[in-house]
Design a binder for these strands. Structure first.
Lengths: 135, 135
DNA sequence: AAAACTGTAACAATTTTAATTACATATAAA
DNA sequence: TTTATATGTAATTAAAATTGTTACAGTTTT
């Protein structure tokens, strides 16, 4: 099961960018995704750690963007929320007595690193503004 | 948890390419990965469906390559074993009453399609021979 | 003081993947 | 022709990862 962190975070940022002057509550944000508000707050915690948003506690509290949508790229979001794209591994430790088993994971890792570099380059060219303009 | 199909299939093909004249058993192949032989046989069934390997049942049976390692690319394996690379979705159906919720999945899909096209182009340039030469 | 939020932790439920078991069928070789 | 050793596949169980839920402390506005 692939985690929804990237999608949730991008969804949050898209909503925040549509209402740049308001503090939006986690319940409102969660309502747009139809998920639990706690999940939203977890991703907001991550966004705050990276200084992308700022929150206000208490009544009428919520979250808003802390920087311009022009200065956020999808690669920033990717790096904040996604470990690494992978095409998977055979789950157990491969047999070190086998020449292939011994080196398979390092060769897969090298391949996956190449893939991730390409994806990053691709996402770096897409600003959050460009993405949110599609809505 | 990301499935190991791609990695298992690539591992199988790497081993088969190292012993191109022998029929290798699922138990031998599984031993190199330290996984259950049934998982190997499932991936072999998929490889057979795509005419990449041929098997022999019964005593001294096993599997061997059905085509040259030069004519197999990592993209072939990717397409055979991996639905699609994705950065995930917010799991539930987003709110269709929200302008962002209504269109988020189609915009994510478009983004992920672009990513997959880039990955395919990248993998198309790597032959199985090039990969197996690393061992 | 009350109401409405955020911030977290702990735990339960769900979903996906892998392992295991079982057995029918096929083939080589003794 | 019998035995041993494979494949092929279905069904079930186990394990791992993600998501949902509950609970509650802390904060801020009214």
């Amino acid at each position: 099961m692939i985690s929804g962190k990237f999608a949730i975070t991008l969804h949050i940022l898209t909503l925040l960018s549509k209402f740049p002057d308001e503090y939006l509550s986690s319940e409102f944000l969660a309502g747009s995704m139809n998920i639990n508000p706690v999940l939203v707050r977890k991703e907001i915690a991550n966004l705050k750690k990276h200084n992308m948003v700022e929150s206000r506690e208490g009544k009428n509290g919520g979250t808003r963007l802390a920087k311009s949508v022009k200065n956020i790229t999808l690669d920033d979001i990717f790096k904040m929320t996604f470990q690494k794209v992978s095409l998977g591994y055979a789950k157990n430790d491969p047999n070190p007595a086998c020449p292939v088993g011994k080196k398979i994971n390092q060769n897969l890792d090298a391949l996956y690193d190449d893939i991730n570099n390409k994806i990053s380059a691709q996402l770096k060219d897409i600003s959050l503004m460009e993405f949110t303009d599609k809505f």
